[in-house]
Simulated assay, not measured.
Amino acid sequence: MLFSLATQAFYDPNANYGANLPSDVLTVTADQYTQFYSAINDNKYIYKSGDDFLISDSRPDKYYAWDLATNTWVITEAMATKKQNDIAVALKQTASSEVTRSSTQISILSDKLELLDFSGAETSDSVTATLTLWKKYRIGCNSVVTGIAIELPVAPDA
């Protein structure tokens, strides 16, 4: 089996790739193939140090790239900024979903109070207390959506 360090891919030595075969392909043993295949699927990078093949630690996350000069995973300033922006966007999306979910709970609890329709051990006081928790939670989540807060509050049903 052939392996390219540049593409981190395997090539069948019996196939005709023409000009598409990377110039850095090296012959690897069946054991190396198995080891490298597993490593690549675990987001690791195969590289050489002298004559030895080495396998990196797993890629920390999708924002890291392999640095050929240092043989380490690195994150550029631009990718670190993108990561932080992606985290903020995901948090706001979660918060927005939680605003919707809490609004549903608030509507149900308000209906119970308005109609005096309690079940089990529920009482007017217990439903009012739960309603207040959900309203505070919705306000907290909305603060994340609007950018006032940067952390989701704990949901009343958590």
Rank of each mutant, 00 (worst) to 15 (best):
T100A: 02
G18S: 01
Y17A: 10
Y17E: 03
T104Q: 07
S126M: 13
T128G: 10
R101A: 15
W73S: 00
K92A: 06
Y137A: 04
K48W: 04
D86V: 09
R101V: 02
T132D: 14
A121K: 12
K48A: 10
A19G: 14
Y64C: 06
I46C: 06
S102R: 03
T34V: 13
V28T: 02
M79N: 13
G18V: 07
D57V: 11
V145K: 01
I40V: 01
P22H: 12
W134D: 08
K92S: 03
K83M: 11
S124A: 12
M79Q: 08
M79C: 10
R59P: 03
S23N: 10
V127S: 06
T70H: 00
C141F: 03
K44P: 01
L115T: 14
K44Y: 07
S124G: 09
E77F: 08
M79D: 13
T100G: 10
A65T: 10
N85Q: 15
V28A: 00
S97D: 13
Q35C: 03
S126K: 10
W73G: 05
L21Y: 01
D117N: 05
D52S: 06
R59K: 15
L116C: 14
L26K: 15
G120P: 02
K83Y: 11
S97H: 09
E77W: 15
G120E: 09
I106D: 03
T72W: 13
A65L: 15
T146R: 07
R59S: 01
C141R: 01
T130L: 13
A90K: 07
L133W: 14
A129V: 11
K135R: 15
D51L: 15
I108Y: 06
S110K: 04
T81D: 15
G140Y: 14
T94S: 15
L133A: 15
S110H: 07
A95D: 02
Y11G: 10
Q35V: 11
P60Y: 00
S124C: 12
L131T: 04
N85R: 12
K48I: 04
L109S: 00
K62Y: 04
N41C: 05
Q8E: 10
Y47K: 00
C141W: 00
A15Y: 06
T123R: 01
S58N: 04
S124W: 09
S119K: 12
D86Y: 05
N16I: 12
F10H: 04
S102H: 06
N43P: 08
T104A: 09
Q105V: 02
T132H: 03
N14Q: 13
L133C: 13
T100M: 01
Y37R: 04
I55F: 00
K135M: 11
K82M: 08
T34E: 05
D67K: 14
Q105D: 02
S102P: 00
T7V: 13
N71G: 07
V145P: 06
I40A: 11
L54I: 11
F53R: 01
D24P: 01
K135Y: 14
T70W: 07
T72P: 12
V74R: 08
I108S: 05
Y17C: 04
Y33N: 09
N43G: 03
A90F: 08
F10M: 02
S119P: 03
G140A: 15
V89E: 10
E77T: 14
I139E: 13
F53N: 09
N142I: 05
K92W: 09
V28N: 12
L116V: 15
W73E: 03
V99M: 01
D111H: 09
I40R: 07
Y63D: 00
T128R: 12
